[in-house]
Design a protein around this nucleic acid. Sequence first.
DNA 1: AACGTATTCAACCGCACACGT
DNA 2: GACGTGTGCGGTTGAATACGT
Length: 308
Amino acid sequence: MGRPPCCEKGGVKKGPWTPEEDIVLVSYLQEHGPGNWRAVPTNTGLRRCSKSCRLRWTNYLRPGIRRGNFTDQEEKLIIQLQALLGNKWAAIASYLPERTDNDIKNYWNTHLKKKLKKMQQTGSDCSNSDELMSSHSLSKGQWERRLQADIKTAKQALQDALSLDKTIPQTPDVHPIHGYYSFTKPVQTSTYASSTENIAKLLKGWTKSSPNSRSLSTQQSFNNAAAAADSTFSSEGSSVESKSGHDISEPFESNKFGFGSFDYSSSEFSQSIISSNERECKKEHTADVPFVNTGELVARRRRSSGER
DNA sequence: AACGTATTCAACCGCACACGT
DNA sequence: GACGTGTGCGGTTGAATACGT
């Protein structure tokens, strides 16, 4: 059987998003909020499929996203979580609210995999996923003990990462935001600050690109504009007006976007993830039982905390 | 400068699941 | 319970860019 593709209609555009499309999408979502993605292309006139719109928003335009330059803390956290959760990028991303699952996945595939491989070759690190994977060959008892140890290590890493406000409040990295911990520049005090920055960069890139030049991808636009935008738009009270006249820098309600106020450090959440994955891992290693999707677990958790 | 190769990352694709009817 | 639809996730692709010769 199989479902028909979500973009069956002809004339659906693919490939990189243009700044113009981004602005249309951001303007629309500012007004209506995310959700009901099916309606987005219809209501905006964007020749994109709903999936593409959602992806663009969640991976690039969403407020509070930080891109590139993973810190050591983030890197360690990702490594630990990957060892614990496997390739459950959405689950891992839930511990790094400013990073998208796609970003983390890419970073893992391009940087961390290699790094860990190197480390393994030199025998300098024992807390990586390959190591964990190699535990398949261990006896069940050994494996369980090892798993317990890994979970303990990961918990510790999480605790460290989630309590960094005590240790490095003035470094460019970590401070608490709305109950979770966020890796942002000190000058940025809210998820909206990042949103403003994103949109500012977007607009800068858009207006900068000359009509004669070939149509720039947004990434290029952002790159061009980043430096200027950083100095032009402060985190407070900045307002950006789009071509269509919409003030698209008005504060987004963080709750609308699903990661506003949930306490990621809540032991209930951590415990549920860890214990469920503990169970999953054990299942995986012991019997042919259906594998519980951790991402779905997180999704359910998000939904129950009022995301949609 | 020109070319080939490697790397990065935005975006796509297909699948699984939740939810409404 | 069966079915249809919408959404989210993980794996993969390929264009753009960086690097080496």
